[in-house]
Design a protein around this nucleic acid. Structure first.
Lengths: 255, 255
DNA sequence: CGCAGTTTTGATTCATCTCAATTTGTGTGG
DNA sequence: CCACACAAATTGAGATGAATCAAAACTGCG
């Protein structure tokens, strides 16, 4: 069930103090806590985290959570919804650097320069928990498990980025798309959704940007997979019919 | 001045307790401390860090600092030398994910899974400071500035990776090489070396792997830059003759 | 219902890869 | 110290996968 705003229209910046919108504590009752920041914490420790996560923020499809250049103050845990992050070059070229879903953390790029270096955009109506960063650091100094888990989350982001570099540097178009689909499938599974059937929240162009391909190439690869009977594609609705050849495409490569 | 081993030959694993090899404390006297982990710490705090950095490790050219799969126990600060990190895919394909030089931190990829996910190889004889990770976390809980700076270091790694993704996803061969050269030049400058003239410690193949190009393409791009008079290339010796067109190549793009 | 945005598909071009030969440099051992 | 062998780099010619340009079809929204 979604938590509805009590006001008829969105407030400034869409920041909603939790005590108004919900009686529930932020993390204690959240079914994402095993995926998210509270992972591995005791009940007591989660209660302290609760007090820190003082607000949530709702975003409509297309809205920015933050933009490159915005001062860095908080990181965000995705409660519901789906995001993309992208980087812009001066000359107008841009690149999608990632797609994020429930339980994942956004905004860690901003720590290094105290300002965000990329844009985060909601690809569907979404809700995030705002985690003020200085407070998180404070609590991390007191709760070892929180500190350690946060380090793991940052490290996981680094490892993920290496995977994308691998993909962009060594794979061909169809391998990239296969890797992309398998990755999505796996993450949906973790969240209790079907691994075989899901809805893409991004356009072919956004997929292409992420995979370093043009949208036409993405479309052709989808068509090819469908012809081969690996998947069925109906616009943004994807059904994986035979996962083996997709995995093969990665493991064995074209070599 | 280099610290020489007192023993005639390298000990097992090349781990050298500091009290044997040097009377100096690890970080207090290190001229890299403004680039490295101690940045922003008071004298007293650095002294505590000193006590934690209990050992150094020397590596000959070609030696591995760690390998994918090795249990994660420590991160490493490069004292002298030059490294590459690379990821291996099951099918044999591999990709260089980065080149690291003095003052930079290696090994943060290992935090997430408690095992390293890439290989780190010395590209010249090198020396690293071993920073036991659990101890670093312990000290970070006590020293706020250390905690914050470590977070910045990790975040910087994420931002750097986004830059590489951008490069791999949107740039053409010559743009990639220009970006690579400018990045190296800038990092050498920071370390007090000439921005115009430097020695590449990696092969064309390694550059290519990092840039998502074949070695022949890298070689051709070098030749092209030389023909145009942007740089002079003699094997691994590079001299930047005219930096403007290299920058132009990035800023303006081919669009 | 119509329009704008998205996706698909086709024809052609182009950048990079591949394969191959040659040159240059580096390290080792006699 | 030089010769030899091996690794690295350069350069050329041709093949190829993805980009580009273009048009048509589909979707969903107002």
């Amino acid at each position: 069930m979604q938590i509805k705003s009590t006001s008829g229209h969105d407030v400034n910046l869409n920041v909603i103090p939790l005590n108004i919108t919900s009686l529930k504590a932020a993390c204690s009752q959240c079914n994402l806590r095993e995926l998210c920041l509270p992972f591995g914490l005791t009940e007591k420790e989660i209660a302290r985290l609760d007090r820190m996560v003082a607000s949530r923020r709702r975003l409509k499809r297309g809205q920015h959570l933050y933009r490159a250049g915005d001062p860095f103050e908080a990181i965000y845990a995705i409660k519901t919804g789906f995001f993309k992050t992208d980087v812009l070059l001066e000359d107008g070229r841009d690149q999608v650097t990632g797609f994020q879903m429930a339980g994942e953390i956004l905004g860690m790029d901003g720590i290094s320069a105290e300002a965000h270096t990329c844009n985060a955009v909601a690809l569907e109506d979404s809700e995030v928990c705002v985690i003020p960063f200085l407070q998180l650091e404070g609590l991390s100094r007191e709760i070892e498990a929180l500190q350690h888990h946060f380090h793991k989350v940052m490290s996981r982001e680094i490892v993920r980025d290496h995977g994308v570099m691998m993909l962009l540097g060594t794979m061909r178009a169809e391998e990239r798309l296969a890797a992309f689909l398998l990755n999505l499938s796996q993450r949906f599974t973790t969240r209790g959704y079907s691994p075989q059937e899901f809805h893409l929240r991004m356009t072919r162009e956004e997929i292409g940007s992420y995979l370093g391909l043009k949208l036409e190439t993405v479309s052709r690869a989808f068509s090819r997979f469908q012809e081969e009977g690996f998947i069925s594609v109906q616009q943004k609705h994807i059904r994986i019919l035979d996962i083996a050849p997709l995995k093969q495409l990665l493991a064995h490569s074209s070599a």
